[in-house]
Design a protein around this nucleic acid. Structure first.
Length: 327
DNA sequence: AATACAGGCAACCGCAACGAT
DNA sequence: GATCGTTGCGGTTGCCTGTAT
């Protein structure tokens, strides 16, 4: 927008003229901003900046507040639960960081964006594939995310009394959403949602996984990361062999799934490649290359022979208790 | 110990949308 | 309807720090 551009330019002129500061914030500036917001509230950032005596643009003040000074921000590294949720929500919405951040309390869009760029895209680069490619999505879906679930459940099992971040905390929050905004539960992205809470949740599970209710992002997503046009309404991007309906999914996968149960919450997670032949065991350590566990998922297209899984995953906050055995 | 390099992250930039006037 | 001010979003940049050589 030209007007916005002109305004930005004028701000830029002020900066260049020495009227405004830029760059890292000082402690004094932080104190000024926090004290002013504590007394007067946030909003009207341009006037706020002036009134608070800050030689900053309103945009800069807003950003500093939202991304750093806000009292409800979560500190520390991204948890496995949060990683799982980010992966799932990004597969659904693409680079809609603010929308994704709405589902991670205390995390900012900037933080999530940085996580994605520094961690996830790094893995895609190491795999020599595009982060938006179906191959990489398959790796996330069938290797990365199941291991996150394993990690989460292992942590749960180790500390069953700690209710701060239960396995289902994201799902609890998500299920409070309005139906049209309802993303999949973190587990349902990979596995039949039916199984995540046991038989009692079967009806809701089917609805959740129904592609019309929760559309997948379009398979036409390109390497371009800007403004995904298929945010909430894309056609499915599954491999062609994927079941068209949830019921087909269940039929196809019924005999071959690996179940993981949270004994406290009756949580059962099915770890299942949907293309897999029924009766064919699918372990948590799929055999690659040779690609027996992913006959049609394109995973074999990667250069798995030189793919050092250990080194890639070891950096994920010491995520992996067990190492895949396909190197 | 010094230097080069890479990764992580805070901050900035450009653009668009929205409401008020 | 045009203009202005503000807010929000996504992409990019550049600094800082840790690690490798």
């Amino acid at each position: 927008m030209d007007m916005a551009h002109e305004r930005d330019s004028s701000s830029e002129e002020e900066v260049m003229a020495g009227d405004l500061r830029r760059g890292p914030w000082t402690v004094e500036e932080d104190i000024l901003l926090v004290n002013y917001i504590a007394a007067h509230g946030e909003g009207r950032w341009n006037s706020l900046a002036r009134s608070a005596g800050l030689k900053r643009t309103g945009k800069s003040c807003r950003l500093r507040w939202l991304n750093y000074l806000r009292p409800d921000l979560r500190r520390g590294s991204i948890t496995p639960q949060e990683q799982l949720l980010i992966l799932e929500l990004h597969s659904r919405w693409g680079n809609r960081w603010s929308k994704i951040a709405q589902h991670l309390p205390g995390r900012t869009d900037n933080e999530i964006k940085n996580y994605w760029r520094t961690r996830v895209q790094k893995h895609a680069k190491q795999l020599k594939c595009d982060v938006n490619s179906q191959q990489f999505k398959d790796v996330m879906r069938y290797l990365w995310m199941p291991r996150l679930v394993e990690r989460i459940q292992a942590a749960e099992a180790a500390q069953p009394a700690d209710a701060d971040t239960p396995v289902s905390w994201q799902a609890d929050g998500i299920y409070d959403e309005s139906p049209e905004e309802l993303p999949l539960a973190v587990d349902a992205c990979c596995w039949p949602a039916d199984h995540q809470y046991g038989a009692a949740a079967s009806g809701a599970g089917h609805q959740l996984l129904n592609s019309s209710a929760v559309p997948e992002p379009s398979s036409t997503t390109t390497g371009s990361s800007s403004s995904p046009s298929t945010d909430d309404s894309g056609a499915g991007a599954q491999p062609s062999c994927w079941p068209a309906t949830v019921d087909e999914w269940f039929t196809a996968s019924s005999a071959a799934a690996v179940a993981m149960r949270d004994t406290d919450q009756q949580l059962i997670i099915q770890q299942q490649a949907p293309c897999q032949q029924a009766g064919e065991a699918w372990t948590s350590e799929p055999v690659l290359p040779g690609n027996a566990g992913f006959p049609e998922l394109g995973v074999a297209d990667f250069e798995m022979g030189s793919f050092d899984v250990d080194s890639i995953w070891s950096g994920m906050d010491d995520l992996w208790y067990t190492q895949p055995q396909f190197v």
